[in-house]
Amino acid sequence: MGDMTTAEIRALSKIIDELDYYKILRLQPSAGSAEIRQAYHANSRHFHPDARRRLDESLEAECTQISKRVTEAYCVLRDPRRRQAYDAKLLRKEGLRIQLAEARAAHQRDSVLVRQGRTAQGRDLYRKATEAMADENWPAALQNLQLALTFESDNTFFKNQLDSLRASHPSEA
C-alpha cells in the first residue's frame, strides 16, 4: 500500500464499519499466514500510534480507530480457529466483525456439533455406533459409523472414529 493522503485516511475511518477483515488488511480471502502478518505490519506502519509522526495530528482519532480494527482483523485471521468461525459468519452474512471471545466460543461450539453430528440422522447413527461400541458389538458399530458418514461425508470426527475402529478390529472390517 502506498502513502495515503489525509482525505483517504478520513474516508477509510468513515467506512471502516462496512469493511470485512480481509478488506481492512487488503488481503485476498485465500491469504496465507505470512501474507496476513505482512499486511498487519504494512497497515501498522500507517496507522499504529507509533507511526503518527508523519501524519497530520488532526488525524489521531481516525488513525487510532483504524489501528484498533487492524489489530482485531489480525487477531482473527492469524488464528485458524477464529478465522474459520469468522469465514462462516461472513458466509451467513451475519456481520463483518466478530468478537475475539465469540470467535473462540463459536469454534468450540462447532467442534461439539461435529462430534455429535450435524444432521439428525448422523447424530442418531453415531449414538447407535457408540452404544454398539459400549457393548463391544464391533460389526454394528462399524456399520452405524459408515452409515453416519453417508449423511455427513465431510465429518472428520466420524472418519477418524471409523479409521481407528477399523485399525483396532481389522477382522470385522
Binding site: T71, E72, C75, Q99, A101
Partner: peptide, 17 residues
C-alpha cells in the same frame, strides 16, 4: 469474571460485549 480480551492479544485493541 468473564474474559473479554485474552493475554497476548496485540494492542491497541477494542472489544465490546
Amino acid at each position: 469474571a468473564e474474559p473479554v480480551i485474552e493475554s497476548n492479544t496485540p494492542v491497541p485493541i477494542e472489544q465490546s460485549r
